Amino acid sequence: MVIREAKIADAKDLLAIYRPYVEETTITFEYQVPTLADFEKRIKQTLLRYPYLVAKRAGKIQGYAYAGVYKSREAYDWSCEVTVYVDSQAKACGVGSALYNSLEALLAKQGIYTLTACITAGNEASLRFHEKRGYEQVACFPKIGYKFGIWQDVLWLQKTLGHPPQVPTAFVPYPQLKES
């Protein structure tokens, strides 16, 4: 398996992985599948600040992971939200773990100390996956989302990368990290 940075040209394959999550699950709260142009824009926007990674095996993209802003205020620069999606044919094959291993390593180099993950309650596979990786549930927001005719609870999980220093080093945007 090869883990590499996502390219705009990957958007079609990534969208194919994401589509069933939108159409068939409450894992994402989107009602409509994004357009290819919207998905391309999301990749570009993410790469301005954070890594966006894909896992490829036997010539096929099997999953992707990325980080995003937890909150836009400067005081949150050392925290981010992480997300992973795996092709239904590649689940439980180590794709998600390989993606998160690479993503977390890059985020640590950027000066990120706190990772958050937002999971719809009832998504036991994702909850177990994150708990195995050291994430702990820190919040539950009851009936905060509505999809498929049912109110959904949302869980927030958190993981700390190392021990945050008394005064953090400056956050390094992903493009600067790649240059160094």
Rank of each mutant, 00 (worst) to 15 (best):
V154C: 08
F148R: 06
L15G: 05
V172H: 00
I17G: 03
R73Q: 11
P173A: 06
R73W: 06
G94S: 05
P34M: 11
D153G: 09
Q32L: 13
W78Q: 03
P164F: 03
G94F: 07
I144L: 11
C93D: 09
Q166C: 10
E74Y: 05
P34G: 08
A105E: 13
T28E: 01
D77K: 09
L47N: 04
M1D: 06
A98F: 00
E30G: 11
W78P: 07
A6L: 00
L47Y: 00
F129W: 04
I112C: 03
L15Y: 06
L115K: 08
L177S: 02
Y31V: 14
F29R: 04
A67M: 06
K44Y: 11
L155G: 07
S102Y: 05
E30Y: 09
E136P: 09
Q32R: 15
Y64A: 01
Y64T: 04
Y174D: 09
L115D: 03
E104Y: 14
L107E: 03
Q32G: 11
R42D: 13
I119E: 00
T83L: 07
T169P: 01
R49D: 12
P168V: 12
Q110S: 07
L15W: 01
G96R: 01
C118F: 02
G59K: 00
C140L: 15
P165L: 05
V86W: 00
E5I: 10
W156C: 11
E104P: 05
D153K: 06
K143I: 08
